[in-house]
Design a protein around this nucleic acid. Sequence first.
DNA 1: GCGATCAGCGGCACG
DNA 2: CGTGCCGTTGATCGC
Lengths: 250, 250
Amino acid sequence: MRLNEAKNVIDEAISSGRTLVVVGECTVHYHGRAASKLASGERLVIVKSDGSFLVHQNKNMAAINYQPPKGVITAELGDGALVLRASRREPKELLEAFFSRIDFAQSFVMRDDRSLRVFGTEKNLSELLMQDLELIEPGLRPVKSESPLGKGRIDVFALDRDGNPVVIEVKRRTAGLSAVSQLQRYVSEVSKRKGVRVRGVLCAPGISPKALNFLECEGLEFFKLDYEVHNPSAEIKGLQRKQAGLKEFF
Amino acid sequence: MRLNEAKNVIDEAISSGRTLVVVGECTVHYHGRAASKLASGERLVIVKSDGSFLVHQNKNMAAINYQPPKGVITAELGDGALVLRASRREPKELLEAFFSRIDFAQSFVMRDDRSLRVFGTEKNLSELLMQDLELIEPGLRPVKSESPLGKGRIDVFALDRDGNPVVIEVKRRTAGLSAVSQLQRYVSEVSKRKGVRVRGVLCAPGISPKALNFLECEGLEFFKLDYEVHNPSAEIKGLQRKQAGLKEFF
DNA sequence: GCGATCAGCGGCACG
DNA sequence: CGTGCCGTTGATCGC
């Protein structure tokens, strides 16, 4: 495909707001929050109507170079090369793909007004847990979820059978050091504000050895959270009160 | 394009290890670490030879559904629909795109053995900072970088003019609460191990108000790190000793 | 708009 | 392998 043919396809795509797909040999320069150079190779470039710009190599899921939405897209033909640019201010960034050869260029109308429905997110688990904190410990009752704090936001705030405040941090996957740090931060602040000892419970499907050690050192607690994701929901194993009206999620 | 034509293109792409691009109307189901459903719409699907699988809507940089490398790709034609699947074990996951219509399907050979060279990463900044800690404070001298610890890995470990240990955490962008937590974790451990008071310095281009407050509460310090990324390098403003042989980076 | 956090984070480097 | 952690993180949601 000749570069000037490709140029027409590209201009047409940009002006009409269609999704553009280009395959060809190019080098890529990026300069903005960081800077990068990518020497010549055959890549797949995608430009979306919101200004998103992606450069894909033939491996890995993530784009090797990219620009998030709101970029201004321009194309320029000259000197035996076709340059495709995405730029924006704030932060000031410029991404350029210099094509020496274009094997394919076409644009597509992509009508799509549907959004993804996901199950098994951390928020999901928090909500389920709120329904039956007894799972963690008899007498534990919920007070507030997503409680804003000076130093962050507590997933679940509760009171144990003796009326002691309990801060609960939920993680959807194996908890690491940072999860413990996070919990520690919340517990420490609540404790300081209330002037009483506050318990901290980390709820996750697992915890790394170092994180467990750290957690124990800090006098925090770990509760193993077994859950499964079903298609239209997530479910915590052992939960007594199942969420009513799950179908309303749809 | 008829679905059975597309099927041939897809099979050919999979067996030959080429990069596959498909555009058409589809619904997408995912079930694995979480679960998701995406109702019908026109999307762009990319399948790479390493098993990466991407479903792109016409907006946003990130794929709406995906599967990282090492997925097993299969295609099945039946019942007026073409199903494209990516699956893997460990974790057990399945991603399916059900195409009711295919507008485009083609595969591409994408020769590419070049990798990205990036400048202005955190590691970059750490290394530059190591060259002249005097920038932070007179008399400050480097001891070790990337020092492994029980509870993490210290960016830069140093001694101040009085011989006090100083833990330095570098962030390439505005530091938030988690950066302070991270630094606090390191300082606390080193302090416990050495049995002496240890200083902690957070070096970043900025710090959020809450993070600053937290940092000060914890007796930690903040140092504003001004830097610029140039094309073949990154540069910290005010640095005395410039890195020699930067050109060798290439 | 900034800030804080999650993400099916991905990807990498190190033990 | 797991674990930690950075990332041009991106994307969302709340202030």
